[in-house]
Amino acid sequence: MSAFLRLARLASLAPVAAACAALFALMLMTFADVLMRSALDDPIEAATELTRVFMAIIVFSSLPVVSARGDHISVDLLDPLFRGRARRVRDALVALACGAMLTWPAGQAWKLALRARSYGDVTEYLHIPQYLPAGFVSLMTWAAAAALIARGALLLLAPRALREEEPGA
C-alpha cells in the first residue's frame, strides 16, 4: 500500500511543477506586459491568451493533488458529532461521492473538447487549438475524480496508510 502511495506522490510531481512554472510565468508576464505598455507603448499582444492558458495549467494541475489530500474548502461545524470510526466512514463516503460526481462534468468536458476540435476552434492571435486546454481540463478533472475515489477507498480499507501521509490528520 505504501508503495502505491509513493508512486502516486511521484506522479504528482510533474503537474505540481507545471503549476508552479505557469504561476511564476504568469506573474512575470503580467509585470512585463504592464511595463512594456506604460514605458514603451508596446504591450504583449498575446498576453491575454497566454494568461488563459497559464490559468488552466495552474488550476487544473493542482486539482488532483488538492483532491487527493482532501484539501477542498469544507465546513467542520458538526465534526464534534463524528468521532473516530464514524468520522472516517463519513469522510470516505463523501470522497467517493465527490469523485463519482466529478466524472459527469469531466466526461462532458471531453465531449466539448472533441466538439471544439471538429469545428476547428482556435485562439485569436496564437491560433492555439481550443481543444488542447479543454482536453487538458477534462483529463485533469478525471484525474481528480480518480484521486477522490482512491482517497475514499483508502479511508475505508487502509486508513493507516493515509494517516502516515498526513501528519496533521
Binding site: 488563459r52 490559468m55 468536458a109 479543454a134
Partner: peptide
C-alpha cells in the same frame, strides 16, 4: 462541463 473549461480560462480570474 463548459463552466469547468471556461472558468479555468477566464482572464479576469487571474
Amino acid at each position: 462541463g463548459r463552466l469547468l473549461i471556461d472558468t479555468a480560462q477566464d482572464y479576469g480570474l487571474s
